[in-house]
């Protein structure tokens, strides 16, 4: 059983505070959705958890099973069991998905051949064509291909907690279903904990949340069950002021 705990997190960019005291918990097997309008700080939360470049932490903590992540370099957070599926996966020219996965699992003593098998099997599951595996990461991929690619990596790397930053943006219906179903299956089968960040409730009809939090202006302003997402669908974010 794993637990990601964000407590009193204040963070920003260039001295400008964006997260103004965030508290939330994600546990194994749970899908925790953070919803909020554009500019509420959702993507900042995702990147601060992972240690993205350019973000500053002013106060608070982010722990995975009691281990403070904020002082660790990004790669060690990943090795500790965190994964971030990025909203806009970065193009990395000349580096293939297969090579990246081999390099990511090498510190755990996994052999490249074993990783290659895992990647190939997972590609079939999430609907990534095998031709894409040798191509440079995210270069010239469609929105749907990029998000399937992120999901494939999630499955191969088998983290304890995954943060999905707007994984529904730029997705067609088929890709949305494929991605959601794969994540839900991993959650149910091996107890992945998921922090899913989204603007829209469309995703949450496929990837059903256990907990929904509403974020506005850098704070969690409401937390509830799946019914909260449905309520937001009909009333919008206007009802949640600071």
């Amino acid at each position: 059983m794993s637990e990601l705990r964000v407590a009193g997190l204040r963070a920003g960019v260039d001295g400008k505070e964006i997260l103004r005291g965030v508290d939330l918990v994600v546990t194994s097997g749970q899908v925790h959705a953070v919803m909020g309008p554009n500019g509420s700080g959702k993507s900042t939360l995702a990147n601060v958890i992972m240690g993205g470049p350019g973000y500053e932490v002013y106060e608070g903590s982010v722990t995975l099973d009691g281990v403070e992540l904020l002082g660790l370099p990004t790669w060690e957070r990943a090795q500790a069991g965190m994964f971030l599926a990025m909203q806009y996966p970065t193009e990395v020219p000349g580096v293939s998905l297969a090579d990246a996965m081999a390099a990511a699992l090498a510190p755990q003593g996994r052999a490249p051949a074993e990783v290659a098998e895992l990647v190939a099997a997972e590609a079939v599951r999430v609907g990534v064509s095998t031709a894409l595996l040798a191509r440079p990461l995210n270069v010239d991929l469609s929105g749907g291909e990029k998000k399937r690619n992120e999901t494939l990596q999630l499955a191969v790397l088998a983290p304890k907690i995954a943060v999905l930053d707007e994984i529904d943006s730029g997705l067609d219906v088929d890709a949305l279903k494929a991605v959601s179903q794969r994540v839900e299956l991993i959650t149910n089968e091996v107890g992945l904990g998921v922090l899913v960040i989204t603007h829209y409730s469309r995703l949450l009809r496929e990837l059903r949340p256990d907990v929904v939090s509403v974020m506005r202006q850098g704070r969690i302003v409401a937390t509830g069950g799946p019914e909260l997402a449905e309520e937001l669908e009909s009333t919008g974010y206007a009802g949640y002021s600071d």
Partner: peptide
Amino acid sequence: YYLESRGIP
């Protein structure tokens, strides 16, 4: 950042 976020040193 992208590669390190996958766990690559």
